[in-house]
C-alpha cells in the first residue's frame, strides 16, 4: 500500500433543510395582507408576492428569530434563508390545512431552532440531559419537592386575546413561564432550568404536563 496518504478533504453540509414541518395558525393577526394568496402567488413564481410578504412580516419574522438566536447577523441570515425557503416550498403550502401566516413563521422558527440546537450540540450543551426522557418517574418526586415560598411572577405579558389564552391561564405561572421561555425565547430544557432556578427534571415534567393540559383544553 502506498504509505503517504494524500490529503483528505472531507465535507460537511451546513444545513440539510428537513422536510416541510407543516404548520398552521389560528388567526391572521395582520388582516391587511392575505398571506395564503401571496404564498400561492410565490408558488407561481411571482417575486412581487414574496416582497409584499416580506414588507408586511419582515420585521416580525426578524423579531421572532432574534429572540431565539440572540444574534443580529445570524438572525438576518435566517430570515434570508426563511424567505428563500418560503419561495421554494410555497407549492407545498396547503391553505386548507392552516393559515399562511403561521406557515411562514413556522418556516423561520424551525430554521432558527435548528441553528441554535445544532450549535448547542457542538458545544455539548444539554447533551447529558437529552434523549429518552426516562427520568419522568423521578421528575414526579422532584416536582412535589419544589414549592417556591414566594409566588412566581409572570415572565411574559402573554395575553393575546386568542383562545389559547384561556388554556394557558389554567397553568400555574411557573409552568406558563417554562412554556413561553421555550416558545418565545427558544430556551432548551436545561436553559429554562438554569434561567428559572428549577431542577431540570421538574422543568421537563412541567412542560410535558403543560402540553397535555393545553391539548386537552384546546380540543
Amino acid at each position: 500500500m502506498p504509505s503517504p496518504w494524500p490529503r483528505m478533504l472531507l465535507m460537511r453540509a451546513t444545513l440539510g433543510v428537513g422536510p416541510s414541518s407543516g404548520s398552521q395558525g389560528v388567526t391572521d393577526v395582520s388582516t391587511s395582507c392575505d398571506h395564503a394568496a401571496l404564498i400561492t402567488r410565490c408558488a407561481q413564481g411571482d417575486q412581487q408576492a414574496l416582497k409584499t410578504l416580506y414588507q408586511h412580516e419582515g420585521a416580525r419574522l426578524l423579531g421572532v428569530v432574534m429572540r431565539i438566536v440572540k444574534d443580529r447577523g445570524m438572525a438576518e441570515d435566517i430570515v434570508h434563508d426563511a424567505c428563500l425557503n418560503i419561495w421554494q416550498r410555497a407549492d407545498t403550502f396547503d391553505p386548507s390545512r392552516g393559515s399562511g401566516r403561521s406557515w411562514m413563521f413556522s418556516v423561520a422558527r424551525h430554521l432558527a431552532l435548528n441553528a441554535i440546537r445544532y450549535r448547542d450540540r457542538e458545544v455539548g450543551f444539554d447533551a447529558e440531559f437529552s434523549a429518552n426522557g426516562t427520568d419522568a418517574e423521578h421528575d414526579e418526586g422532584q416536582e412535589e419537592g419544589v414549592s417556591p415560598s414566594t409566588p412566581v411572577s409572570e415572565a411574559f405579558d402573554w395575553q393575546t386575546g386568542e383562545r389559547i389564552d384561556e388554556c394557558l391561564k389554567t397553568l400555574t405561572p411557573e409552568r406558563r413561564n417554562c412554556v413561553l421561555h421555550a416558545y418565545v425565547d427558544g430556551l432548551s430544557h436545561a436553559e429554562i432550568a438554569e434561567h428559572t432556578g428549577t431542577p431540570l427534571g421538574t422543568v421537563k415534567a412541567w412542560i410535558k404536563r403543560s402540553l397535555l393540559r393545553l391539548r386537552e383544553c384546546m380540543a
Binding site: 414541518s21 407543516g22 404548520s23 398552521q24 395558525g25 389560528v26 388567526t27 393577526v29 420585521a59 416580525r60 426578524l62 423579531g63 421572532v64 432574534m66 429572540r67 443580529r72 438572525a75 390545512r97 392552516g98 393559515s99 401566516r101 403561521s102 406557515w103 413563521f105 413556522s106 422558527r109 411574559f156 405579558d157 402573554w158 393575546t160 386575546g161 386568542e162 389559547i164 389564552d165 413561553l180 416558545y183 418565545v184 393545553l214 391539548r215 384546546m218
Partner: peptide
C-alpha cells in the same frame, strides 16, 4: 405538529418586531 403550530402561533406576537 401542525396543530401545535396553530395553537402556539399567537404567542409569536410576544417577540418585539425588529
Amino acid at each position: 405538529v401542525e396543530a401545535w403550530e396553530m395553537r402556539f402561533h399567537p404567542y409569536s406576537a410576544l417577540a418585539e418586531p425588529v
